[in-house]
Write a protein that binds this DNA or RNA. Structure first.
Lengths: 253, 253
DNA sequence: ATCTATTGTATCAAAATGATACAATAATGC
DNA sequence: GCATTATTGTATCATTTTGATACAATAGAT
């Protein structure tokens, strides 16, 4: 569900002010977490992005690490805050730490402009090394939540991304590359689908991840040979052709 | 060459004192870099480790990131400081950031004991998130260099590692797993060998990385089919059997 | 009843992999 | 010298995997 959630200007400014006052006491300085949340709907691979304030720019869902919190726990917490999901498939794939993370200064200036004053905390101005995770979610179960400086939560087609801040475009591409590598090896695909699915849906998912067409009959043969699919009753979908079987992912049958 | 370099107690204490005085001004707090340096000799895969002070514990070569330095540049600098090599094959593979990075407190206590006093800087006591890289080097060209708190630089067989501090054992195993994945895909193996090598040497390298025996004839067929090996003159090695060819790695012939 | 689009399965060729055989070579021992 | 031994380079065959195509079954549209 491409739920869109817009918050008011006043609430936005207030949220930022509050964050800046408490952040240095709560979080590690210098290290952040960014997550590339993948979803799949309408046969397309999607990424969840946040609109940065009232600007036309988007960013990856991210956050900071509490001073007494494990890195992986931080990633999970940030993800849960944003999607309200439990049991999320999460993989760390890259850490971004170049000084010039593209247009970072633009972002900081925008942040300042948004709250209409120079904050006494220099939190955003400091250098961050960002540890990046990707997550695979069943988008039908996601309930996107906005917070602090973000005015909108939106799914974007991986091939139709908006303008993003920092080096987040680079991070998204690296996430996709890693997902491609993990899809077969870790049977990761099924985290992007619902409980049941047709073979065609599964194929469209693979095609959208690998960004290329696959041969239907050979794909079907390969998936069935994995031995992890349980075949359920046929799905009569009202289309004018043979009805497909439904499948369920059944690890270690 | 398993060069061993031992420095004096006085020089050691002095090095630590000096480091602690200047570190907070020079380096980012909270973020460190660790490198798993792989080498290959006597048909074994090796890892370069540093002896921590006068203790029996070893650690990975690591360091900190200068305030105005890119993350990748920091990894390269740390590696060059330790090996005096240029053009090193380097891959970032993991970032370790759990609060309880195993026996960290032991290490800190040891560090304090070594310099015989509580340092005014709490540098070592702070929490670090460590970005980990692995490097592939031709060990015949490495000139291991000791520094600061380390009293010895030594190559260890991947299967005969000493006791290591922090979570460095975990990091080494993760590095090996990643190397296994990269070996074929990125033709990474040749960075571990000298300019020329025999097919058997190459096979022993693959076997030591994958930790399993390979069938000689099929391995040879596969390597030759890659199209990246240039066959040179035979190597008369004085052994009582047919002399093998030498090969050179020739990318994009 | 026929047409159309899609699904499930079968089949054949081509490529990759696994297993084995064997001739060539270079020192060793007689 | 000459057979012996260990290793190397290549060939060959069977098996498995992959790519490409054919075709019957189905379910609604006409």
């Amino acid at each position: 569900m491409t739920k869109i959630d817009i918050i008011s200007d006043a609430a936005l400014k207030n949220g930022i002010r509050q964050f800046l006052e408490t952040a240095p006491d709560i979080y590690m300085a210098g290290v952040s977490v960014d997550t590339v949340i993948f979803g799949f709907h309408h046969d397309k691979l999607k990424v969840l992005l946040l609109r940065f304030g009232n600007t036309p720019y988007f960013v990856l869902p991210g956050g900071y690490i509490k001073k007494e919190e494990d890195l992986d726990d931080a990633a999970l917490r940030i993800l849960q805050e944003r999607t309200e999901l439990q049991n999320i498939y999460l993989e760390q794939f890259y850490t971004s730490g170049n000084i010039s993370r593209s247009n970072e200064k633009v972002a900081v200036e925008l942040a300042f402009k948004m709250i209409g004053t120079i904050p006494n905390s220099n939190w955003f101005g400091q250098r961050f090394v960002s540890v990046c995770y990707y997550a695979l979610v069943d988008d039908t179960k996601v309930n996107p939540v906005t917070e602090a400086f973000f005015t909108e939560v939106k799914w974007f087609d991986i091939n139709k991304l908006p303008r993003v801040l920092y080096d987040h475009d680079n991070i998204i591409q690296k996430a996709l590359k890693r997902l491609q590598a993990d899809l077969d090896e870790k049977l990761a695909a099924f985290n992007l689908l619902g409980e049941t699915f047709t073979m065609l849906e599964l194929q469209k998912l693979y095609e959208s991840v690998y960004q290329k067409k696959l041969v239907r009959t050979n794909f079907q043969r390969k998936m069935l040979s994995l031995g992890v699919l349980e075949r359920l009753e046929k799905q009569y979908n009202g289309k004018s052709h043979k009805a497909p079987y439904l499948y369920r992912f059944a690890q270690t049958v």
